[in-house]
Write a protein that binds this DNA or RNA. Structure first.
Lengths: 330, 330
DNA sequence: ATGGAAACTGAAAACGATTTCAGTTGGCCG
DNA sequence: CGGCCAACTGAAATCGTTTTCAGTTTCCAT
């Protein structure tokens, strides 16, 4: 069917071995190399990557497993990972788990069958704890989400620190009753919550946090409830872009405005956050750096499989905007 | 190294052929099947997909080539394509071209080497015309962008019709000097421009369109120029989400507001468009349907390689919001 | 009991590349 | 001129599956 290395060899009157060497830049006389190249062009030959992988036992492919590529945070991370990967001559298989542990297990198994070179993975809280128990036939770098005992390299945000930055900022602007909304699927929610609670206590304030599913709708309903039943807090911190959008939607639906009815701060500097009303105060995550770093850690791990475990913790930046302008104290 | 089917066979005291059949659900006695399954579990065997692909000559993989997965339009399409693909037991290789024809050529070649089952492709204007000339070893479905003579199945929006919807809406609300901003990299820009111009003329208005690169920055600079040098039009139509965001940014930077200083309408109902100021009037593209349909067309093409060429044209919906509220006539 | 069909199993041949190993040249030096 | 090394080339093995082909067993109807 498809033209194989044998066809090229036949056409150039050489052996398949010579064709292989000529194309791979091995030791071949200039004359033969030219003949081979001519034959390749004439036949329209394309190497068969499956055959190459089978023989050479390396897939030159990595897996990227995230919750949902539609989430701008993961989109940005994925884009960075892919750029680095293709630069390194690696292909990327992308998988969306929708925070579903079953899908995570399924895709991890798929990765083993693909004999991938490595995997970059943003696991759910349910899965991250089990990773240490299993042995994979590829190295893995966790991204965005990790736990002390997971036994894998990782790139994460300083979640607690970033949450504390927001609390501190809100307190400085005079807010006291600061509510926290945290995603319940990932370790980031947990860590951000701890950072929030710790900071609140440090300032002598009473923390009040809610764990909810990481979706726009969940946040919207939660905040709508505050306005319906009251009392609403003075300020809210949303632990990711989805929750942040939910908060904004609820405010709009209830005809409330920022920061007067509710001051709003959150995570993820998505492209629209500076365009909404007075602009949203957010933690900017170094998304591209995270993706690039994950890829780097993976490549280095491939070079040195026995190097000590590494966890890269990156700092977030607090971008203050109009949604937390400040409050005249009573 | 890795455990192969032979190891399983040895452990179960059967031949590799039997193991293969047992796992593929072939004709095997229940007793042997159980023995094989036990052996699989004991050895931790995972089939090697490269070997399987080589032998069976089918990759069970499709390529998805788009301009930039960070663009929410493509994100949504990609998500739909992937869901459908995994449902059909196919893997997806995602490639970002950044509207660069060289990268497009590179990735198309990669797809041939991967021996992919098929490709879903959103080509640039530069490439789409050349597709008919080349022969690929896989079927291809164009998505979002196509041209009459491209010789491939396609799923596209009724671009001219959608642009006309916007013109009609703006005219109904009393706007007359309506400027159009169109992306210059894809056929959608061209088609939307034609639809815009045709509709303007139909209403006795003078079309005034600009072709610019499909980036936030390009649109922002263009609109900023209007306010700096004047005169600004009464309304603007932006032919995609990026340009739309650029328009909004320029307005904000110049301290202008919608719709009084400039009425704004555009393409792509991105999640933030109803939250900006009075809400943006946009054409909602059936993104998920587009992705799903592309996958369907591809699967059907695989079933019936010689079926006639098909082009699916989907209608856009006009969501009217505050950015085009209307104009009191002088 | 016997014939034949049906069910099951294993040996071996692919799939298309890479790579080892063993030649075969040709050139150069003594 | 003989010998040796370097450079080049090809035959054949290999990667891990699937699948064909042929052989064996089982079972049922006659």
């Amino acid at each position: 069917m498809s033209v194989s290395i044998k066809d090229v060899a036949a056409r150039a009157n050489v052996s398949p071995a010579t064709v292989s060497r000529a194309l791979a830049g091995g030791q071949v006389s200039a004359a033969l190399r030219a003949k081979v190249e001519e034959a390749v062009k004439a036949t329209g030959y394309r190497p068969n990557l499956s055959a190459r992988r089978l023989r050479s036992q390396e897939s030159q492919t990595i897996g990227l497993i995230v919750a949902d590529i539609s989430n701008p945070f993961f989109t940005a991370v994925a884009r960075a990972v892919e750029d680095e990967a293709y630069k390194a001559g690696l292909r990327v298989i992308l998988c969306n788990t929708d925070e579903n542990p079953d899908k995570e297990a399924l895709y991890l198994q798929l990765m083993e069958e693909e004999r991938v070179t490595g995997v970059i993975f943003a696991p759910t809280r349910a899965t991250v704890g089990k990773l240490a128990k299993r042995q994979f036939n590829f190295p893995m770098v966790l991204i965005d989400r990790a736990e002390p005992g997971s036994g894998q390299d990782a790139v994460v945000l300083d979640n607690a620190g970033a949450a504390a930055l927001l609390v501190e900022h809100l307190r400085d602007r005079g807010y006291r009753r600061i509510e926290g909304l945290f995603g319940n699927a990932s370790t980031t929610g947990v860590e951000r919550r701890l950072g929030y609670e710790e900071a609140m206590r440090r300032f002598g304030l009473t923390p009040s946090a809610r764990f909810i599913p990481p979706s726009i709708k969940a946040a919207e309903e939660e905040v709508a409830g505050w306005f319906r039943r009251g009392p609403a807090p003075e300020a809210v911190i949303a632990s990711n872009g989805l929750l942040l959008m939910g908060v904004v939607r609820a405010l709009r639906a209830a005809g409330k405005s920022m920061p007067d009815d509710l001051a709003v701060a959150g995570f993820d500097n998505e492209s629209w956050t500076d365009l909404i009303g007075p602009g949203l105060t957010v933690i900017e995550q170094p998304v591209a750096t995270m993706g690039r770093t994950a890829m780097q850690l993976l490549l280095e791990r491939l070079e040195e499989p026995d190097a000590p475990l590494r966890k890269m913790v990156l700092g977030g930046r607090c971008l203050t905007r109009g949604s937390t302008t400040g409050r005249e104290r009573p």
